[in-house]
Design a binder for these strands. Structure first.
Lengths: 147, 147
DNA sequence: TCCTTTTTTGCAACATCGTTGCATTTATCA
DNA sequence: TGATAAATGCAACGATGTTGCAAAAAAGGA
């Protein structure tokens, strides 16, 4: 079924407040992972603290997860249906475009199977790719998107 | 040839100052990647600002590189000989132990070859693994190392 | 060894990012 | 519509990282 901001909040037993609805709307529209700063500058003058708390709440409820894109700047993306408040599954690679700054979930690229050295127990992994996204390859110097 | 703090600085035309020698000594001894905070708390009361500048200088000269370990907290590790002031090559995976907090370069695990979706041009990639390192698997609850 | 030059440091001040406590406001539901 | 539990907004704080500038230190030659 199609997800809407309202349905997502209802499913997680969270109240439908303006900032939560706006965050979800933005994450559903853009299909990229957004940092708290990117969210902040694209929402209707949200309170910074409330936004942090919103993201933490969403993370705890399995609505969003943090994305590792190699920039050391945490990004947030909507979880697929597989996530909930008990477990987070985010088993695909992420792509960070060095031109426009977008971070894109490559849902079709699964985590590679790794031959880990003896003695290491792997619980999770992140694969982050950097380069040029399709929008930026042939377009020459494009302004860095605010998204 | 074996690298020493002094030889590294000589090769990069950098002056041999106490803090630089200490940072290199620590990175050579520990074979893990260290954050600026980890470095700070393991050095001889260094000036915080000088430490940041030291790391930036080292990075520009190809002496250290930033490591992506999935914690969104930048770590620094010595470059292999392949790096210099013109290019950074760090084509191996990194392992972050959730128990002791160490970040270990898995030099024997190369970056996997990825079948990237059409339209994306990949320039670099980071593979970060999380789990338990050999030291922590059978030792039960161990205090988080300050390193 | 000492002197000069250039690099590096250390300090003050500042910017950004993120968190906590608490009173006020708001969403929800009876 | 009113009660109540949840969520917000504000003040204050801590950690992280940066810049400008004067003082100190390293390097190399006389």
């Amino acid at each position: 079924m199609k997800q809407t901001p309202t349905s997502i909040l209802t499913n997680s037993n969270l109240r439908k407040t303006p900032i939560r609805l706006q965050v979800l709307q933005l994450l559903l529209r853009e299909e990229t992972a957004l940092s708290s700063q990117q969210l902040e500058s694209n929402l209707h003058k949200p309170d910074r603290i409330t936004l942090y708390r919103t993201l933490r709440t969403f993370e705890q409820k399995g609505i969003v997860h943090q994305v590792v894109d190699g920039t050391n700047n945490p990004k947030y993306a909507l979880c697929l249906n597989a996530c909930n408040e008990h477990q987070h599954l985010d088993q695909h690679a992420h792509f960070h475009c060095v031109q426009c700054g977008k971070t894109i979930c490559l849902t079709e690229v699964s985590q590679p199977s790794i031959h880990t050295p003896a003695g290491f127990v792997v619980q999770s992994s992140h694969l982050a790719l950097q380069g040029f996204c399709p929008d930026c390859i042939f377009k020459g110097k494009k302004k860095k998107s605010t998204l």
